[in-house]
Computed example of a mutant assay.
Amino acid sequence: MKEPTLKKVAYGVSMAIAIILVHFIDVHVYSMHPIFTLLLAIFITYLGIMFVNRNEKFNQKISRTKYNLLNALVVFVLFIAYFSIAQ
């Protein structure tokens, strides 16, 4: 595995934000067709990745331990948010 950078964590954060946002809209605002939901999540993730790629401060190298902890935190927040929105 290459040297971990903050950019790789930011990619996961942008994906998690897209999933949480689309799920919230689907549950509480407007019930969407599953294909449209998927395409909207992909589009929002793409916008997030474009933002991360344009910003140079995400190119910082971080330790592998910090990288793993941040990724675990992102997955935990995604899990909690996804199921709390559904209730």
Results as ranks from 00 to 15, higher is better:
Q60G: 08
A16H: 04
I49E: 03
K7H: 09
V27D: 04
T65H: 04
V9E: 02
V74A: 05
T65P: 01
K66P: 09
L73D: 09
P4I: 01
F83T: 06
H23K: 05
V74L: 08
H33I: 11
V75M: 12
V77G: 03
K61H: 11
H33Q: 13
V74H: 04
G48V: 06
I19L: 03
L21N: 06
Y82I: 02
A72H: 10
M50A: 07
T45A: 06
I42M: 14
I35L: 11
A16G: 01
V9H: 04
V9A: 03
Y46N: 10
V22L: 04
F24W: 06
G12E: 06
A41F: 09
I17Q: 01
T5I: 12
L39F: 07
L38K: 06
Y67Q: 06
L6K: 04
F51E: 08
I49N: 00
S84K: 12
L73H: 12
T37F: 02
F79G: 07
H23N: 11
T65S: 11
T45V: 03
F76H: 11
V52A: 08
V74D: 00
L40H: 06
N59M: 12
L69C: 13
I17F: 02
P4A: 09
A41T: 09
H28N: 15
V27W: 05
I35A: 11
T45C: 06
I17D: 00
R54M: 15
K57W: 13
L47W: 05
V77N: 01
L6C: 10
K8V: 00
Y30A: 14
I49K: 04
I49D: 00
F43T: 13
I42C: 11
M32G: 02
L47F: 10
H28V: 08
V9D: 02
F58R: 09
N71A: 12
F76P: 11
I25T: 00
A16L: 01
G12L: 06
V75T: 13
A72E: 10
L69D: 15
R64V: 14
H33A: 09
R54Q: 15
I17R: 00
S14P: 03
K2F: 12
I35D: 08
E3G: 00
G12D: 04
A18G: 05
F76G: 12
L47P: 01
V52F: 12
F36Y: 11
P34A: 10
H23V: 02
Y30V: 07
V13M: 02
L6Q: 00
T37C: 00
T37Y: 03
F24S: 03
F76N: 08
L69A: 12
K2H: 12
H33V: 11
F43Q: 07
F24A: 07
I19A: 02
Y67I: 10
N55M: 15
H28Q: 14
K8G: 04
A10W: 05
F83S: 08
V52K: 04
K8H: 06
V75P: 05
